[in-house]
Amino acid sequence: MSDSYIVPLQMECTLFFQMNPHAYETLDGLALRLGRTPEHLDQVLQKLVTLSILKRMGEGERAIYSYNQPDMIHVS
């Protein structure tokens, strides 16, 4: 997949986790929810983990992904 297709899918995937901050999903589960193929999503999820937007627990097909909230500080 080219960047022009990956980036919108990354955004869609991120929005899902942002709207469902307590979701814990496997690759297949997420593919089902977003109506995408696991093959397409796999690459995207790896990217989101690299960017620290998602957390991954476990490895392989049983790996579970969840949203990783950004850092927040208050400055006076």
Binding site: I53, D71, M72, I73, H74, V75
Partner: peptide
Amino acid sequence: EAQIQVISRGMDK
């Protein structure tokens, strides 16, 4: 007026 909030990724505190 006296406070700001910074929400970030990839930046140290």
